[in-house]
Amino acid sequence: MKNYKRILVAIDIYSEYDRVLQRALSSAAKPSDCSLVFVTLPPVYFQPYITGVGGDFVVDIERQSRTRLGEIAKQHKIPEENVYVPTGRTADEIQSLADDIGADLIVIGTHGRSGLKLLLGATANELLHGVKQDVLAVRIDGAS
Rank of each mutant, 00 (worst) to 15 (best):
N82K: 04
K77M: 12
K2Q: 09
M1L: 14
A124L: 01
A28F: 12
C34Q: 04
G142K: 15
A28K: 09
V44P: 08
V107Q: 03
E16A: 12
F38M: 06
M1F: 15
V85Y: 05
H129T: 07
R66W: 02
D12N: 03
K30I: 00
K5T: 03
R23H: 11
L21I: 01
V138W: 05
I108M: 13
L21K: 08
H129K: 05
Q64N: 10
V85C: 07
S144P: 12
G55Y: 02
L21W: 01
V131W: 02
V138A: 15
D100Y: 14
A103I: 06
F46C: 03
I78M: 15
P86M: 07
P43C: 04
I101W: 15
R6I: 07
N3K: 15
L127F: 01
D33Q: 11
G121K: 11
N82V: 08
L105S: 06
S32T: 14
V135D: 10
C34M: 07
S27C: 04
K2G: 05
G112I: 03
A103P: 05
E126L: 10
A122K: 05
P42G: 02
N3W: 15
A10T: 01
G88T: 01
S114R: 07
R68D: 01
T87F: 00
E71Q: 14
Y84N: 04
D141K: 07
H129M: 04
I61F: 00
F38A: 06
G88M: 01
D60S: 12
Y84H: 14
G115I: 11
V9Y: 01
H129C: 09
A24R: 13
R63L: 07
G54H: 14
T90H: 10
L69S: 01
K5C: 05
V53K: 13
G130Q: 04
Y49V: 13
I11W: 05
L105H: 02
I50N: 09
V135A: 13
A124Y: 06
G52N: 00
F46V: 03
D56Y: 00
V9S: 03
I7F: 12
G130S: 03
P42R: 03
L118P: 07
V107E: 00
R68P: 05
D104E: 05
D141E: 15
A73G: 08
A98T: 04
I7G: 10
K132G: 06
V138F: 06
E16R: 14
K77Y: 11
A143G: 14
G102S: 00
E81D: 11
P42D: 11
Y45N: 08
H76Y: 10
T87E: 02
G54V: 12
D104M: 11
V44A: 11
C34E: 08
K30S: 08
D141N: 11
A137D: 01
A28G: 06
G88S: 06
I11P: 04
L8G: 00
G54K: 13
G55N: 09
M1Q: 09
P86W: 07
E80I: 13
R23A: 08
I106W: 05
R89V: 00
R19F: 06
Q75D: 09
V59W: 05
G121Q: 07
P79E: 15
